[in-house]
Design a protein around this nucleic acid. Structure first.
Lengths: 329, 329
DNA sequence: CTGTTAGCGCTTTCAA
DNA sequence: TTGAAAGCGCTAACAG
């Protein structure tokens, strides 16, 4: 910048003003400097600028992994919002919750943290506080930090009610197992929604019909195998997610059981795979959760008023495709 | 840092030395300062440190989108490598190639750029040069920048040869359409692999059997519909990717055509969906491409010797599942 | 409107 | 072994 100033015969201050669009520079000088800057294709050093301005123009995005659709979609929702606000995104993949919370590499580097669907332990929560910046949560909740999520209980109810209305009365649920240390709420909430729906219809809750397995790509398939080995298998299955449901479909296909004639299957997400598999599901807006979370983060940063409603619940809705229907008599 | 120095009764210089592990500090002082630092839970400001040291400790990761499996997986491969090297990742999603290349928000912020499977135009290439930092490519190639990729021609050949060996002689390909401006090579290369394999087996190349459609979630399904309306439909289909192949499966299922008894289907990727759909495919290591690319980037940064081989080709291999087989007589 | 003067928080010679 | 001082490249008063 010193060079530019020298070549333009002005002070660094003036150049700085022009570059930051600050007022108080004559049009003549402004255009002259702008031209020079363009010619030299000069840009300010963001780091120096930030150092001087005491703000770092970056936001941390913390996610357990980046591979699955949901996280990619949330990220896709976050990035454009931050970009438009002139902020950069520092993405942290916290495989098993270690490095990020232990070393806090984001410390003094970010103005806010967006935690994506990450079950945060007590220790981690305290570490997060140490960062001293606003925390917002996408796809989950954490104390009363601002967050954006769906109503998991309601989503599950929508799915199961759909099955009930199709005339099913032996409805199973394949759920993701949750460990006590990792307070991940969707499995709990969706199970509750499942039970509520059954109870609401006056259906019994058969514990054999709830299979909980630790998450894995083929977990849905294994769980379905289990359900098929029951003396009285279910006629309908509600999967924790679309990936789980599609796994169940695989087992049914291998077993030669016609869907939905003999067994109906429904998931949650409206993952792209659902459309390809003709899977009935309950759609959750993933990208929008990212978008809204990013917006919340920005509003917290603005220093302005806190957001109107710091707890946003986005709606879910049933998407009926070809894997559910009445039992074939 | 000034505070720490004052409280310890030493100069900032000494504190800095301790914190950066530089030599020339007595053990006594060192431990004393370390204790104090811990107590105050003080950490250096990365920005100030970088400003002073003229290096920015960040790497840009540029991808067309973050939603699809491949990109998430590559990112998952990149992040841990950078983290271990103490570098942060600035992730840029370049929806339609605009902001990033036009504004170069990464300018003066990163020490290298990893471009992930992004078809870069001439203009964009020039903008990239403007950043003045090493560029490495994951999942593609760009001039002779270091890169990590698979051999698309070979991958396609593996897929098609498998079909030929199962006795098929009317083999279709569903390909992603590529526009002239966006020099995205996999479609071209995979088509070539397809043709090579056919020619190698002395099979004719029927132009009707190659359907090219612009990418979309259901593109494979639509393309399959097209193939099914041919007077003589194919008995086997090679999809550009697993998602395309699964789309084709959907059409076949809806049409009531048994797979693989009447039609075989094979894809490329070994996307998680492939396992769930029992899809035969050619596996490409996505995460590893990220890992290797990140390593290449680091080696370029080290200032040390350039990497042994700056052009890495990772192997692909057939994964046989249940969607391919001989024609049922 | 523009320049001068201090820093921002750290690293790094160069002396002591 | 330690400290003083001079920046890194920019912004932000405060004067003129």
């Amino acid at each position: 910048m010193a060079d530019v100033a020298a070549l333009a015969g002005v002070s660094k201050a003036t150049v700085s003003r022009v570059l930051s669009g600050a007022p108080g520079v004559s049009d003549e000088t402004r255009t002259r400097i702008k031209a020079l800057v363009k010619e030299l294709s000069y840009v300010v050093s963001p780091d120096a600028s930030r150092l001087s301005r005491r703000a770092n123009g970056r936001i941390a995005v913390v996610m357990p992994h980046t591979t699955s659709w949901f996280f990619g979609a949330v990220l896709a929702g976050i990035l454009p919002v931050l970009r438009d606000a002139g902020l950069d995104a520092l993405v942290y993949q916290v495989a098993d919750g270690r490095e990020f919370f232990a070393d806090l590499p984001a410390q003094r580097q970010v103005d806010a943290v967006i935690v994506v669907a990450f079950p945060v332990t007590g220790f981690e929560r305290r570490q997060l506080d140490l960062l001293g910046v606003p925390v917002v949560v996408a796809g989950g909740a954490l104390l009363d930090h601002p967050n954006v999520r769906i109503d998991d209980v309601a989503a599950a109810r929508q799915a199961v009610t759909h099955l009930i209305r199709s005339g099913h009365d032996r409805i199973a649920m394949i759920n993701a197992a949750v460990t006590p240390e990792r307070p991940y709420s969707p499995p709990t909430d969706r199970l509750q929604g499942y039970r509520t729906a059954l109870a609401g219809a006056g259906l019994p809750a058969d514990p054999d019909l709830v299979v909980e397995l630790p998450w894995s790509g083929t977990m849905g398939a294994h769980a379905m195998d289990r359900l098929l080995s029951l003396e009285r298998p279910p006629t309908a299955v509600f999967g924790f997610s679309d990936e789980v449901a599609v796994g169940a479909l695989r087992s049914l296909r291998r077993a030669g059981i016609p869907v939905p004639r003999a067994v109906s299957v429904v998931g949650i997400d409206d993952h792209p795979i659902a459309e390809l598999c003709d899977l009935t599901t309950v759609r959750q807006p993933a990208e929008e959760q990212g978008t809204e979370a990013a917006r919340l983060a920005l509003s917290l940063l603005g220093g302005g008023d806190p957001p109107q409603n710091p707890h946003v619940t986005l709606p879910t809705h049933l998407v009926i495709r070809a894997t559910t229907g009445p039992l074939d008599p």
